[in-house]
Design a binder for these strands. Structure first.
Lengths: 241, 241
DNA sequence: TTGCTTATTTGTGTATACATGCACAAAGGA
DNA sequence: TCCTTTGTGCATGTATACACAAATAAGCAA
């Protein structure tokens, strides 16, 4: 893996874990010592992270780690839900290929299999996270729309906009399995609606699915001890929660 | 202005004007001669344009100018309309400041003044473009949402997703003034709805406004001689129009 | 001819030196 | 006292050299 990519990843991690605090000034030169690479890959990584919205450029005085508010989280999730809704509707209206349908159904089946166990271990939760991620990727892929894919790439880069954010946030308090079943029912509903070419219903369900995330996350946000475990949480100020 | 910015702008222009053809391979080294700057600002510009979606990275063999389809255009406009709709609804639901309201009303009034003339010159059309741009920027600014602003930044970067795309496309055939009045009525409606705190209505109207763009653009897309005048049109393949 | 292997070319990753320009502080004037 | 101005240092912009990796072409064998 190239230095550029490694630098990008480690910088992002440092920010999301709060090891670089919100409001902190990041200077290219300082990072040279801190990360052990030259300015060139650092410059690229900083530019990229600014694009993603994790940093803000302060001309002449470096980049500043952005602090997110609960408003930003709410907005991100609502936007993601809306976009996923459009993706689902377009998939339904425009029709999808047999193989694509089978792929996403297989994904749903895998989650079903996982959830049919009597008890869920930490590993199972990790597996769920992966499968959920895959499901959501496939869902947006179904729309076969370049524009939707680019938009979603962007929104998912923001902390807590990822479809997994709520799972991460709740897995710590041992309640995630309840949510898994609700979420999985919604997954099934969305796929059904797409298969039956009910565009509006698919859109509605996908939005509702995102709102579930929002609801769970709102609860989680009140529990600071939970959030302390979660990547990105350090970036969030509870201004006007 | 820095070389980086100049390089970015001129490269983008070259691409949108079709002087660099879709599918063409862009290599950093070649561009050094072509643009007269070193690889460093070129690298930055290429990375940025790839982010924007105008280029695709082909590792080991440069960047390739992306070719857009009519599907991409349709999707872009629909996504923009949806996002502007959310922005309008949020502005209505969350309330906006008196000064902000006055600013956007002043903008509407300026367009009114412009349209009240008996005849519109080319300069007037240019002025309309500016004012329209400002209106749409203010509209999204009303939502006071970091997330919305970032998303819209991104979508507007795609060719023909700009709120002005339809005006540009029709101004050549001398019919734009008709559209101006329709659009301006919609502008007024959106602002009214926000002022009256009718969130859902504001959202609906903003979406409709985007659909106007789509309708006009569809007509324009059939007229190749019009499109030849329009920046970005060269990037669009009429696959399955 | 086709497929494989290797040599060569070509393109990008990376480091670093130098140029430019911005921020901030200190000094001078109103 | 406050505003303006100018200087100095610091941060980024830019160019370029080198190293590596990947693509392409050439040569050989089956």
């Amino acid at each position: 893996m190239s230095q550029t990519v490694k630098t990008l990843i480690s910088l992002r991690e440092l920010i999301l874990n709060g090891e670089i605090a919100p409001g902190e000034r990041l200077l290219e030169v300082n990072l040279v010592d801190r990360l052990g690479v030259s300015r060139t890959p650092i410059r690229a990584a900083l530019a990229r992270l600014a694009e993603e919205g994790l940093l803000e450029k302060a001309p002449g005085s470096g980049y500043v780690v952005r602090e997110f508010t609960v408003h930003d989280i709410r907005d991100s999730i609502e936007v993601r839900g809306t976009l996923e809704g459009m993706a689902a509707r377009w998939a339904a209206e425009r029709g999808i290929s047999e193989p694509a349908l089978n792929r996403i159904k297989a994904c749903v089946a895998e989650i079903d299999a996982l959830l049919s166990q009597t008890e869920l271990s930490n590993d199972d939760i990790a597996t769920y996270l992966e499968l959920n991620e895959i499901f959501h990727q496939q869902l947006l892929g179904l729309s076969d729309s370049f524009v939707i894919e680019r938009m979603l790439e962007r929104i998912v880069a923001l902390p807590f906009a990822s479809p997994n954010a709520f799972v991460i946030a709740t897995s710590e308090i041992g309640q995630s399995w309840k949510i898994f079943f609700v979420a999985q029912d919604q997954h099934r509903g969305i796929v059904n609606a797409i298969e039956n070419r009910e565009g509006l219903r698919a859109e509605y369900l996908a939005r509702e699915h995102a709102l579930l995330t929002l609801r769970v996350l709102k609860t989680a946000l009140k529990n600071q001890s939970v959030l302390d475990q979660v990547p990105g949480a350090k970036l969030i100020s509870n201004v006007a929660a």
